[in-house]
Design a protein around this nucleic acid. Structure first.
Lengths: 339, 339
DNA sequence: ATGAAAGCGCTAACAT
DNA sequence: ATGTTAGCGCTTTCAT
């Protein structure tokens, strides 16, 4: 039990290097019969390679760290984090890489970066970092490779949706249906994706000459609860919009809940448009029309980029084109509406 | 950059042991002023402790492995896995432990256990292992500590819900409402929790003298799709039940979808009872009445048990008492029903 | 109080 | 073709 290469070497009366090369299949060649004997001895002695010892030498752990947006307590319960984590794990599996989820990255508001730099991982994937994320600047200064997802192109390399384009696609859709009175449920003020979407909406609305009102652009925190509050605020006073464009699917689900509760039919009375296309977009009634962000692809790209970074290559940020997924929550506006 | 304790020792002209003790605050005492100088030098030289080197000696990584039920491709997308993972991460965070998610544990149907035993983690939490899980027997033989969640008490220590009691509680509830014609949506035939629930249902139904029919007990695979198929089968021919008890919330959601689509009102025409009380139980319309399994608590217990195991203590399996969470999917059966 | 040195288990450069 | 050995960075025993 608990034997080492030394034990194998002793038993076979060969050197540890021979055992090592036999076990690893290189780089030095080992005669077939020796190799067989080593493998047999390893089996017999129940040899288990110690990854720590190996990595202490090779500086490779075949493990990547995943750093979460820590603004919420139950991080995995967020549909977005759930989905992107799943996508990343799928991609990691293809490369036989494992994932280290570092808990408690912050303490007393200060980032505990030591644990991110202690050699356990070859690199990090940072999920939707906040705009003032000190962790990123620390990682930047060290030599550890990392990529961000939904970092809004803040630093290189980052994998993000083209949020501006996504907003434009959404507005194209709503306007093609005849909507001109469109409210917007914003996200989180300190979240890159959210900021881009809000700015894009404002710019597009102005460029397209759409009506705007203060209560037609309300923060929704990217959450279902936030979406409920935002929808309530939007519908609290005239003028009323014929469509509500939500920054993400979660807030859209909240908005839908409020609309339904108020007896407002979706999409007959009011159209509702989401953003992301998470699985939850298909679990509402009606199903959400939404702007799809290719998160599966982005997760895969994050892993690939990180791998390249680890090999010393230069890697660039990528923007992923969103597209419309038309379902049941949008339709032409009702004909006789008074502001 | 990238300095070691050796660098600090050299700079300060002290021994590495002094530096080590100063940095760790023991076990050997170090004069205050020396300690201060070491800390200052560490800061200045940008010293980062190497966790691999440390753990090679101490045999402690402060990291626990999480082994998933690998029967599904997108493991984190399952509401159950998502929820239990979240609970575990919350518990780990309290103890400053990190989580290693090992991907690709199986290859060609053979468990790749080497990666689970290579020293990167201090122990494992195995999620809902299957009944023929070879991984468990391998872990058993090695000296690595591990606990299972929802292992159905198969091995020690295991943290599971008391499924039999849960079924009884559910039947008590339905019968107190007047139901006597109760169908059951089973789970997965090779899943411990599922087997227990199905067996308990059969035993209870028989003991309570409930009507049974072959098409009133149908596998639902623990999934929404499975729940849909099961519900369709149950409703495909008379006699019709007045209530459907589902093995978990996911299949209940699927069943609800089918019932709603068929124009059967829940709970007016048919009552629907779930099991687990995942967040999704509250996202349906009506919200699901369900048997709550304290997963948050079980996650915490898993971490605590593993910690005790790591300290060499003896740890026992625990059963967690489920309880009824009454919401909107169950009610008294309609009065005039013909079989 | 503190320094020297022996490992932890492995890889790989350097012999032979 | 294969053995010897110097590390990787750290903890900890043994001296002093």
């Amino acid at each position: 039990m608990a034997s080492t290469i030394k034990d194998i070497a002793k038993k076979l009366k060969v050197s540890v290097s021979t055992v090592s090369y036999a076990l690893n299949g290189g780089p030095r060649s080992v005669p077939e019969d020796v190799k067989r004997r080593v493998l047999a001895a390893a089996q017999e002695l129940d040899y288990r390679p110690n990854r720590l010892a190996k990595s202490l030498v090779t500086r490779r752990m075949d493990t990547v760290g995943i750093v979460f947006d820590r603004t919420v307590p139950n991080l995995i319960l967020s549909p977005f984090q759930q989905f992107i984590l799943n996508a990343i794990l799928n991609a990691l599996e293809e490369h036989k890489l494992d994932a280290l989820l570092t808990t408690a990255v912050e303490e007393d508001g200060k980032p505990q970066v030591a644990r991110l730099l202690d050699g356990r991982v070859d690199g990090h994937i940072v999920l939707s970092p906040l705009i003032d994320d000190r962790i990123l600047s620390v990682l930047d200064q060290r030599r550890i490779p990392f990529v961000t997802i939904a970092g809004g192109g803040r630093c290189t390399p980052d994998l993000s949706a083209d949020n501006g384009k996504g907003i434009a696609v959404g507005l194209d859709h709503l306007m093609s249906q005849g909507h001109r009175r469109i409210a917007f449920v914003e996200g989180l003020s300190y979240h890159r994706d959210s900021i881009e979407r809000t700015q894009a909406f404002r710019a597009e609305a102005s460029a397209r000459g759409l009506e705007t009102h203060p209560h037609w652009s309300i923060p929704g925190n990217f959450t279902e609860e936030g979406g409920m509050e935002a929808a309530s605020a939007i519908l609290s006073q005239p003028p009323y919009p014929t469509a509500i464009f939500c920054s993400n699917d979660e807030s859209a689900r909240g908005a839908l809940r409020v609309l339904t509760a108020k007896g407002i039919r979706v999409p007959t009375d009011v159209s509702l448009l989401g953003f992301d296309d998470l699985p939850i977009a298909q679990q509402t009634e009606p199903k959400l029309t939404t702007i799809r962000q290719p998160l599966e692809e982005m997760g895969r790209a994050a892993v690939n980029s990180l791998l390249q970074l680890m090999e010393g290559q230069t890697v660039h940020s990528q923007r992923f084109g969103p597209c419309l997924v038309q379902r049941g929550s949008t339709a032409c506006p009702p004909e006789n509406i008074h502001s």
